[in-house]
Design a protein around this nucleic acid. Structure first.
Lengths: 244, 244
DNA sequence: CGTGAGCTTGACTTGTTTCAACCAACGTGG
DNA sequence: CCACGTTGGTTGAAACAAGTCAAGCTCACG
């Protein structure tokens, strides 16, 4: 099981346990010493999954709350006829879903995009710690708010923006998230997504996505090769993302 | 101040101020006598707004957490070019947004659809009560989960379903929510939405929405007159909502 | 060497938007 | 009481965005 593809590359990133460091998400909470004390009885088990493996399906019961440590994953819903909508991409450090802290059944499917490492935390102790530590509660609630802000943003894109804007917006958002956790020091980022991931995320066809990305490339906005994407003209992309 | 007895629901029709009873949302929490004790210092002020009035814009600071008591409202985001996406409709008993309990700034705009009555609760005391009462925390978290499930559902509809399915789905969802709070005893419901509301909610044009609703009517699926909608053929509508 | 997953390209079809005109209902001020 | 503007709904034709179908290509992998 090689953990090569989506793993953090650039420089030597600060660590959070075995994870890279994140300013803006939950991961550091789980390794915070004081919080760790609260979870002293806890066995925090590591798990691995290969790229393209389905981790959980909507409705599955989860006794533990998983957090992504390495690699990318996607949460999605699939319609009866096979069409799929990706609801969010999970990056290293992301809690799979804040709702899982209270609800033991997951409400959407989760698939590994790259080879993946994640950790699962026992719900009961999370809940107890949450009740004891208002600070922790605040952090979780902030995470939850961000989660729902992303969902709203997605709805706005899908409902009211054209194909080019949606794709540009997705790429910029991912870049921003990676930048925040120190995984995109320059204009280039690890980009493990296939076109069908993008298509499912922005509600378009693979063909159409391919066409538009080709346009972006011809217009000198970005370059994609191998498993990496470099943003050549950020302001240009932003302009497209904001328009129509 | 013990929140212990929890919901006042069972048996006799509980009232929420002048609101009808709700099984499935927060409103009864706020009028529960025991909870009211915890908020004894609180001035719970009533507010009114006429139809079509904008209550708050994205980014506005709210010192208090509003709950809808009477009428319908909509949360929405507006793009620079004037296009608008409605993110959710707020019905009597709905907390405007669970995030507001922790975050004093609202992340999307709220407009009154009909004449509106709402109440605003002081955040600080909500937070305190939340920390003291795990049960209350569970309720809020359940509400929050439902909120985000709705957002996900919206994204799926907008990304992967056709116009007819989106509209049918919206109508059925609203009907179901009204039914749950006893506001739709039979096949007919109060329906204050204009076609432009529907269009903004499902990400389509007003004209296209008009066309499709006309089709629905011709197919004997539903009837709309005055300010009320009756679902003539629920299974038929459901079939459309699930397809494509 | 063959196979399958992923990307590219082109011709054609479908769904949705845009533009425009028209109608009915309603409230307002003269 | 009527003239009038506004809001909301309906209809039709033309323009456009995105989907479908199909073929051919590369590349990694067994």
């Amino acid at each position: 099981m090689t953990l090569g593809n989506g793993s953090p590359t650039a420089g030597n990133p600060p660590t959070c346990g075995a994870c890279p460091a994140f300013q803006d998400n939950l991961c550091h909470i789980f390794t915070d010493a004081t919080f760790a004390d609260a979870l002293v009885d806890t066995k925090i088990d590591d798990h691995f999954a290969p790229a393209r493996r389905s981790l959980w399906r909507a409705g599955d019961p989860l006794e533990r709350v998983p957090v992504i440590c390495q690699g990318w994953a996607a949460t999605s819903a699939t319609l009866s006829d096979g069409r799929r909508q990706i609801l969010s991409f999970l990056l290293p450090g992301d809690l799979v879903s804040a709702a899982l802290i209270f609800d033991p059944v997951i409400h959407c499917s989760v698939d590994a995009v790259t080879d993946l490492r994640y950790r699962a935390f026992p719900r009961a102790e999370l809940k107890q710690a949450l009740a004891r530590k208002p600070k922790l509660l605040a952090i979780v609630s902030r995470f939850s708010a961000k989660e729902s802000a992303r969902a709203d943003r997605l709805a706005i894109d899908l409902g009211r923006r054209g194909a080019a804007a949606r794709i540009a917006s997705l790429i910029l958002t991912l870049a921003e998230r990676l930048r925040k956790r120190g995984m995109m020091p320059d204009k280039t980022m690890d980009f493990p997504l296939r076109q069908h991931h993008i298509a499912d995320a922005v509600g378009l066809t693979v063909v159409h996505v391919g066409n538009i990305i080709a346009e972006f490339r011809r217009a000198g906005l970005l370059e994609i090769n191998e498993r990496s994407l470099t943003i050549a003209d950020q302001p240009g992309l932003s302009r497209i993302a904001d328009e129509l």
